[in-house]
Amino acid sequence: MLLGVAGVYCVPVLLTYIANGEQDQCTFGSVSNEQYRAYLQQAKVLSSETPGGFSWDDVKASTRLDQLFEKMIDGNPSVYERVAASHALLRSFGAQYRNTFDMRPAPYETVAKKGGVVSFNYYLNVNRLGLFHPLLPFFRTTYVNVHLFGPGHFYTGLIPSIAGDIRFHVQYPVLDNSRPVDERAPENCPLVPNLALSDSFSRIAK
């Protein structure tokens, strides 16, 4: 009985350490796979220090990922570096990239013209954040959206955002989940803008 319960919890978590390895074969514009893997290694060190750093609070979890990302990127303005670092951070927790939200086939061209954000959707097993719930053994998919702010979109809330900013949004699993499945995109890694558009999505000075 105990072994069965342990298997229900442990096997899916263990699989996140080996699944979706193709999502670590990424390059991001001028960022090579070797450079991406350096970010991934840095993120793994940071994520290994985070057990207990997450609580069952969507807002606090989002803020925690924002903080880890800013520590990794250290002010680098390049959109290629920033998308690479954000992907590495989530992959260090075993997250699976699903798609670039709602603006295919040209999300960057669309946002460059109209303003707004380019959003990347991920699935993350909540147990990888050190969180367990006895009533949610089969409801562990946490939805993480990574929002890359484009030109002309300025969020003026508690933490103002400008072009090139990246913010994380976490939605923990719930029993009554009516969210549709996020379709798996054909690409294994988040899309990045072409060189002509890269400056529009690189972080500008406040």
Rank of each mutant, 00 (worst) to 15 (best):
P160S: 05
K44R: 14
T100L: 01
I18L: 14
E34Q: 15
R37T: 11
K60T: 15
V45Q: 12
S202I: 00
P180M: 05
M1Y: 05
V45S: 13
T142N: 03
A205Y: 08
H87G: 04
P134L: 09
I159R: 10
A163H: 08
P134N: 04
A95Y: 08
Q23N: 11
V79Q: 08
G53P: 03
L191Y: 00
Q67P: 00
L135A: 13
R37K: 15
V144H: 02
T63F: 00
G150W: 05
G52R: 13
A84I: 11
G94F: 07
V118A: 00
G53T: 09
Y36R: 08
F201K: 04
V83K: 07
C10W: 12
T27K: 13
P190I: 01
L135F: 11
E49I: 05
N127M: 15
P160I: 04
R64I: 00
L148M: 07
G157P: 03
H169E: 14
L148Y: 02
A106E: 09
R179Q: 10
F132A: 09
L68A: 08
S30H: 03
D182W: 12
E187W: 07
R140V: 11
I18V: 15
M1E: 11
I73R: 04
S48I: 00
F201M: 06
V45M: 13
T63I: 02
N177D: 15
G4Q: 14
S47D: 00
P107T: 10
A95C: 07
D176K: 06
F154T: 14
L148T: 03
S62T: 14
P180Y: 02
H133L: 11
V59H: 07
R179D: 13
P51Y: 11
P137F: 12
P186W: 12
R179M: 04
T142I: 06
P51Q: 13
S48R: 06
D199A: 15
E70L: 09
P51N: 07
I166R: 02
D165C: 07
L129H: 01
L131R: 04
G116M: 08
S30E: 04
M103W: 10
N145I: 09
N127F: 06
R91E: 11
Y123G: 02
Q23R: 12
F101L: 13
R167C: 01
D74W: 01
P77S: 07
V118G: 00
L136I: 03
R184G: 05
